[in-house]
Amino acid sequence: MIVAKRKPFEEILQMIAGHRKVLIAGCGTCVAVCLAGGEKEVAVLAAEIDMARRLKNQPIELGQTTLERQCDREYLAQLDDRAASYEAIVSLACGVGIQFLAERFPTIPVYPGVDTCGLAVNQDVGWYEERCRSCGRCVLDRTGGICPVTLCAKGLYNGPCGGTNRGFCEIDPEQPCAWYAIYERLKGQGRLERIRAITPVQEWRDTVPRTLLQPGYRKPEKAKS
């Protein structure tokens, strides 16, 4: 899932400093699961802002809502009659949701309430680890199901570098070395030949804004609203 971390409170407060009526919009999917932008986090942020503004003698009127998903038009449409009554919106969705919301209501400033941190696994409640950079050229078949683009700090395709340290990365003794792990896994599977061949220079695909159109589908003449 996509994981995010709430921005520092002072930063959010600064963004909305000039506004007196603000909607806080959560997202009920990924960011709710990773405890950054669901219904509960919306309520907490609203309470914090309310308190801080009262203390400053600058009271603010706050609306709260949490959409099922901010990356889908059908859910954004639920705000169509309410959005215009606010001076600004703070979105707690991931960067995708924030932008789609901002695009839906182009006359209203939309501010990010979170920093989007990647595509991660749920290791435990409140503990997430990045696993994919969505590079668009998956090599997991060759690397034992371990992503060198994401998990090697240098993103090496022909690792490990000389900095691997008893199975850990040179950048941090707690960060496992991806290539050490790749080696160990492939060795266990008897498939080391997979990394014996040189992986050629990457043809990067994530250097331009990407559009995905699945086979058999077409873009409509004009996006329906």
Binding site: A153, K154, G155, L156, Y157, N158, G159, C161, E170, I171, I198, T199, P200, V201, Q202, W204
Partner: peptide, 19 residues
């Protein structure tokens, strides 16, 4: 980059040493 004097710089690594 984390080792150096610009630890928040973006490492390029467009290629690795073998490439």
């Amino acid at each position: 980059c984390l080792f150096g004097d610009h630890p928040t710089a973006k490492g390029v690594f467009d290629l690795d040493s073998i490439q």
